[in-house]
Write a protein that binds this DNA or RNA. Sequence first.
DNA 1: TTAGCCTTGAGG
DNA 2: CCTCAAGGCTAA
Length: 473
Amino acid sequence: GQHLKIRTSDALPTPFHFTPTGELCPVCGDKVSGYHYGLLTCESCKGFFKRTVQNNKKYICAEKQECRVDKAQRKRCPFCRFQKCLHVGMRLEAVRADRMRGGRNKFGPMYKRDRALKQQRKALIHASAFRKESSPLLVSSTHQRDYTFSGGFQPDTIPQSAVLPTAQNDIISHQHPSLLPSNSPGATLYQYPSFSNWTVKSEHPNNCAISSGSAAGIYSDNLFSSPPQGSRMPRLVMEFLRCDPDEIQLQSKTTARLKQEHSGSNKHRNPSTFSIMCLMADQTLFFIVEWARTSIFFKQLKVSDQMKLLHNCWSDLLLLDIISRQVMYGREGSLLLVTGQEVELSDISSLAGPTLASLIQRGKDLVEKLSVLKVDRQEFACIKFLILFNPDVKELEDQGFIESMQEQVEGTLLEYILSTSSQHFGRFAHLLLCRSELRTLSSLAEDYLYFRHLSAEVPCNNLLIEMLCAKRS
DNA sequence: TTAGCCTTGAGG
DNA sequence: CCTCAAGGCTAA
């Protein structure tokens, strides 16, 4: 297995020394003692997880499998405790089947990267506080009241006074409540679908310690999807939809990460809207990588080819993610963010320079075009794969396979279109036109972002920058 | 069984 | 060398 190296320019200007102090165990809220089985946890949950997996223990919940797990009550229900361990992302495969002691495992680089990211975020938010005036987009922030997290852990450490924006800077407002339900799914901590573990295989042959009701799936059925004529839908379209992440999950995870960023920062300063957007984009990129990595066909490719494909199309997918959100759930004249917040487009445009303003205008036009066509979730899912499987990427090892994949996706999309709107043969051509406009826009957006990166205005050392710099070096 | 402390050992 | 996440040990 080949690992994709993340350039970790560890030379951070500020000599932060990592201290687990202050971090709370995502399972029970106790003090963190270090990285254990994939993430920062306390000593007791580390031991509990180890015992459970090593001895293949099975627990039964006496209640309704929703017991609170905190420091005081964690002994009460091992079933719910283990469930929570899995839910927050503890890795079964980090428990060694052979019980070998010492040494390092393949999670080492991930821990390192996680540390680097945490440091970088501190530095970033600290630094952006001093750059506020020079940013074209000014601060706003995340009110917490609409984002209720069940589960009772992860106490909100952000004081309201700290997140309340100053009136004139508040351009991110609240999403209309009817669109996105307020009952978010269970709290999920941000997990890093890091490049470093692309090739991780389970070391543990017997990696299911409890039989059912464990590990809530990353993707669940989307509340918004309403597939027309289920029986007539091509099989591959169904398959593509199954790969598509759930908007609500994305929302809660992104919100959780932004919250995490914020809680680790100087609580009396707000990062710029631009850097918040960069963080959202970075988070979305993680989701895109995770989506691709676990998707049908793509996961069969060699990792080197996977990387080449993603390096080629990440910005297209990122932009399509934003655009499809506007088309499916958005409101005219405003930008709906992945977090469910809304920004008035006029507010952004008035603060943006000419480059960004023209990008926004063209993006708006594309959204308009796709809205008129009433492009649906099924078609967007196909388009994503169409973008991903680009046989024109150079130096592909499995070029033939990717070529046939693209043909197959095209065929699927066409079949779907004909099955839903037989009168619109031109629809397929229209969609392909939109795809090429998307390509143009993403390329412009990349240039714009790179320019701002060179002016040191983009948070560095993250996946966004990794991708941005990959083909320019 | 739990959870705090101890020992181990590959990788930096 | 040192680090630090693995597994191990043991008193509650």
